[in-house]
Design a protein around this nucleic acid. Structure first.
Lengths: 272, 272
DNA sequence: ATTGCCCTATTGTCCGACAGTCCGTCTTTT
DNA sequence: AAAAGACGGACTGTCGGACAATAGGGCAAT
């Protein structure tokens, strides 16, 4: 019996979401009687078993994982299989090996790891510069505002030092971009919101390479960045959220202006 | 010879950033003559080699990867080693196997994959509900505003259908939360900004479980959500960015109110 | 056009092995 | 007694090889 594909125009919202959200194909085409039988390889089963234990906190950050052989015996699989599972977890950042240690330890994914995963996605989806910039325009000013409200004295001195380091960094120093990134990062830290920090970080990461080109191309860029940083620091010092937001907004907006001046099209996809 | 650790108080800004950014320890303690010799296992080398080819677009989305044995011969390593490398890439979402296919194909990390990685990080860092909520307060209203400006007719009908589906979903339906999430997702899609979509998704994912509890606990929650969705849709229909922003802001704010009414502390860490 | 059958390429899993190395312990040297 | 070696056990990293299961292609029979 042949099934006609009735192209029913989405009478129910797709759970799966529109944007390549990557959940299983879900050919739940109104009249599909059977679900595809789940046939996952052993290494996935093992890795999800461990992952589950970690996420449910049965295994906690810092705990040492049993040796590969022991895991193999417990799961009744071969050591190679366990190793493949471990590689998955390792790449997800759920387990890690402290440099020069033998056993694996349970760990939480570092911000940098998550951010770089997100950056990969952005690069491969050929996200354009404006998209990243737009996201920064949304996030960064609010982060600055939060930072103004919550900063400690330590945050303030850190920001000041970073800003000084930027001012002193010689023309054409390839490190300048890192310093700018550090400034953003410290502001994020001062906002005391891990979630925003995580989201921010991939943005700056993604922007960094082209930002480097921009700074070296546009003559007035350095001066403008210095100025913006100073104003932001003042606002943060005075715990003036509105000012902080305003100047960060200007600051980020300047980036786009810089790109335009440098003749970089806003639609160029970001790259590695 | 023993070195005294001179606690130089950060004369230069740390490149590595303050928030557990997870870059190597960097014991560049002023006078360290040698860098630690890099000793990375072969499976990492293999996986980074492939990763590099993918990120540099030498291998493109959809290309089939050479067979494991062939890779093993090219890299001059054992097949097991190649497999471990593949597991890393697989878990990063850079390669994947279409269901029921033999060879691996190069793929770009799906939004859902990245988001779930981020969610894991949030859970394990014991990020509190307010932190996530705060991030939503920053992002969602702006996304709604963008969506209002850029929505197509298709976006509009999709949103409307989702909203209807929610209104019709029976009290206590465990699917209700998914529908709410879908609404957010479709709004993200309408904003035409992949970056924000990516950032958003992990937030809704992280919030979903507790949101489910909240909806079922607070009697007036369903009505308020329905109302907010309707207003947002109207604003988006009229391409009224300010209204969209305003109502989304209220909508998200309501979540927090709901939590308070439900007696859930805002500091409870989000869970799986 | 569908079904059945064979063949090959390739994956998933296993077995077993061995060198390298981290670590604690025990012994020697200063 | 403190420092420096020597030793053995516990694991990991990597390898060689093996075998069942299956996706995919081709070809014949319906």
């Amino acid at each position: 019996m042949v099934m006609k594909k009735k192209t029913i125009a989405a009478t129910r919202p797709r759970r799966a979401g529109a944007v390549s959200t990557g959940v299983a194909p879900e050919t739940t085409d109104a009249a599909s009687l059977f679900d595809p039988v789940e046939r996952s390889p052993a290494y996935t089963k093992v890795s999800s078993a461990i992952e589950h234990k970690i996420l449910s906190r049965a295994l906690r950050d810092g705990d040492v994982l049993p040796a590969e052989l022991e895991l193999a015996q417990q799961f009744r699989v071969h050591r190679s299989t366990v190793r493949e599972a471990l590689r998955q977890l390792e790449s997800a950042g759920l387990v890690a090996r402290p440099p020069g240690a033998k056993r694996m330890i349970v760990s939480r994914p570092e911000a940098a790891k998550v951010a770089s995963g997100m950056r990969h996605a952005l690069v491969l989806h050929e996200v354009s510069f404006v998209d990243v910039w737009e996201a920064m325009m949304v996030i960064e000013p609010e982060v600055a505002a939060l930072a103004a409200l919550r900063r400690t004295q330590a945050d303030l001195t850190a920001l000041t030092q970073t800003s000084e380091a930027f001012r002193e960094s010689p023309e054409g120093d390839p490190d300048s971009v890192n310093i700018v990134a550090t400034f953003f990062e410290q502001l994020g830290a001062a906002s005391r919101n891990q979630v925003l920090v995580l989201a921010k970080q991939s943005l700056t990461q993604a922007l960094a390479p082209s930002l480097a080109r921009m700074i070296d191309t546009v003559p007035q860029a350095r001066a403008r960045i210095t100025d913006a940083q100073r104003r932001i620091i003042v606002a943060v010092r005075d715990k003036n959220a509105d000012e902080a937001r305003k100047w960060m907004s200007k600051h980020v907006r300047d980036f786009k202006r810089g790109y335009e001046v440098a003749g970089i099209s806003p639609d160029t996809p970001i790259s590695v």
